[in-house]
Nucleic acid binder design. Structure first.
Length: 354
DNA sequence: AACGCGGGGAG
DNA sequence: CTCCCAGCGTT
């Protein structure tokens, strides 16, 4: 069909010499592979390592995951992003307990039915954990295949993904589907790098890569640009009472759904509780994929203990242990910790603004 | 077929 | 700054 059939043998040889040692590769049970694959969605290996260890340490089986408190689950996920992944993980764990009597499903179709498991992840689990010869087409694989075959299709489009998946299925080595899929991803992550900076001299496909032979490495893969971010101005209210700070829970849907936050509004004039303003706090800036928050902050002392429904007063220890606070609020962490520790919060808060 | 959804590392 | 990462669910 195309030169892709030249890839498996040199790729597998390269992989056996160059595969990184990763915790989910040492004991690739279905549960281990599943957790790692969900964490790795749109997330680099380096960012996942610590989360993976802590997660499996506390939730070593599907049954543990199915039973854990949701707030505890979100705390384990705090800072990793895309928090619906964590909730979907638990939904799927409960599916496994109820529909499969606690045994991880062992066909591609059944795995694909789990909440949070799409085409890619189903292929990864099926091939790596069960040796089923199905492709696992992620961003790395799309880039590698686009370059090796010289495919000019937009890799964000469904038909391009489907075409590349079928091309891979046709050359899949049935004796090593898991290694083949992981080798493709490893090659994309370590050698066939994006943005026209690949290390072609180390590539097992260098002799037959179409993009290299036709000098189109810088132009492949083809990918439609994404739309620009919008900027949102927010004023964050750091509200204290004694040695506690006010937190509220974000809505169940949308950005940072279900996580905790310091109360914040669009305008600095709309402090949500009756309080005396004490000082301006540090500024913060946080860039999401599609939104950019520009945050000012105001330190206030509440007039009384009463809070709106669903808000809570939290001390320093509980904040660190029990409440999943997104990294977007990192700029205020030092200030809040100092105040909750009984120090003068704005004495040194100027340092937070650097 | 678009869009929303985090956070961080590399160039 | 920009790009992109072992993508998925919703609309």
């Amino acid at each position: 069909m195309n030169n892709l059939e030249l890839l498996p043998i040199p790729l597998l040889e390269w992989y056996r010499e160059n595969a990184r040692v990763l915790p989910w590769r040492s004991d690739p049970t279905p549960y281990h592979v599943w957790i790692s694959e969900i964490m790795l969605q749109q997330t680099r290996v380096a960012a996942v390592l610590d989360y993976y260890r802590r997660f499996l340490d506390e939730l070593p089986t599907v049954a543990h995951l199915a039973a854990v408190e949701e707030d505890r689950l979100l705390k384990l996920w705090q800072g990793l992003g895309y928090y619906n992944r964590a909730r979907n993980l638990q939904k799927a764990a409960r599916q496994i307990m109820e529909d499969h009597d606690g045994a991880f499903p062992d066909t591609y179709e059944q795995i694909r039915c789990l909440t949070g498991v799409g085409d890619y992840t189903a292929g990864a689990i099926a091939s790596i954990a069960f040796g089923i010869p199905v492709p696992a087409v992620d961003g790395n694989v799309l880039r590698v295949v686009a370059r090796v075959t010289g495919d000019e299709g937009d890799i964000l489009k469904g038909d391009t993904k489907a075409r590349m998946g079928e091309a891979l299925r046709a050359v899949m080595p049935v004796e090593a589907p898991g290694d083949f899929n992981q080798a493709l991803m490893e090659l994309g992550a370590m050698v066939c790098l994006p943005n026209g900076a690949p290390l072609c001299d180390r590539c097992p496909a260098r002799d037959f890569c179409v993009a290299r032979r036709t000098e189109r490495i810088g132009e492949l893969p083809v990918k439609t640009p994404k739309k620009p971010r919008r900027v949102e101005e927010r004023t964050v209210f750091l509200i204290f009472y004694g040695e506690k700070v006010a937190l509220r829970r974000r809505p169940k849907r949308g950005l940072l759904a279900g996580l905790w936050e310091y109360p914040n509004e669009q305008s600095p004039a709309s402090c949500p509780v009756e309080a005396a303003t004490l000082a301006d706090g540090p500024a913060g800036r946080h860039i999401f994929t599609h939104i950019e928050w520009h945050m000012g902050s105001i330190l206030v002392e509440a007039a009384g203990e009463r809070l709106p429904e669903g808000w809570v007063w939290v001390g320093r220890e509980e904040l660190a242990r029990d409440y999943a606070l997104p990294n977007a609020f990192r700029a205020f962490r030092e200030t809040v910790e100092r105040r909750l520790g009984g120090e003068d919060p704005w004495q040194s808060s100027i340092f937070d603004m650097v």
